[in-house]
Amino acid sequence: MFNQCLGFLNKYKLLILKSALPLSLILLIGFAFLLVGYNLQEAAHGIEGRYALEIFLKDEALPEDIDSLRAFMVQQPACDKLETVTREDALRRMSNILGEDLTEVLGYNPLPVSLIFYPIDSYKNRTYLEILKSQVEKFEYVEKGVFAGEWLEELENFNDIFVRITTAFLILVLIAYILLLYMILNHLWLKHQGTAGKLHLLGMSRFNLRLPVYIWALISSVFTSILGLVILAVAASIVSENFIELQYFEPRHVFAIIISFTAISVLLTIFKPMKIPSYE
């Protein structure tokens, strides 16, 4: 049986290789969309932390003022976390970003004390942060409140739309993949059918006759998925080096993709009626 499978795969190796390329290209398009969606989602997770209101205090603000503002902020029902950034902390962060010590350039530390307010998830929206901002700006020792909400929401909305488009597109890719695989399978079976009829007549069981096709589907789908993922990895590394940094799928995602496409292909082969001529 094993030899028969090997013989079958050897006999149709050219067809298997020729079919692998279009199947891989179809998968590549789908995987590329998946990768962009995945990167956007990862970016959105990073952005979630920025749903925070940073309140800068005036230089003349006293420690008691800071305490009273802290007390006001902590009392807010939306408060998840409140962080105090001292002038020294702010200077250290800025120096890390700029790569040089600001006090050496300016001769003094120009950065103010600030409080960073992180809301709980249900309050992570632009409207709430704007209300809160207008409230804290009424304190006389508060310089101003800042948050990135203006563009965050739009980015999230865009991300949502993109995820929907990606899902729809992936379904289309999957349909195209199944149709192409079905066509190749038909072609392969038509070529094999005459021999299958003779072998069945001489005593080979139906399962043994179809087994090489199942094995073809298994090998072909694993091979095409890997090929698609490898081409995408190369493309992603080129994009990362030259344009924008892209995060590639994690190993568990790669594994899940290969398993899913292999399962789809093998199931399709099993449910495809492969008619054996009956010689009736």
Binding site: T195, G203, R206
Partner: peptide, 22 residues
Amino acid sequence: SKAKTTELRRSIGFQMEEPVVF
């Protein structure tokens, strides 16, 4: 059954009207 008929065919010798060869 169909499978048993195939098995039976395997155990006998036969020639069809047209040759069954590869």
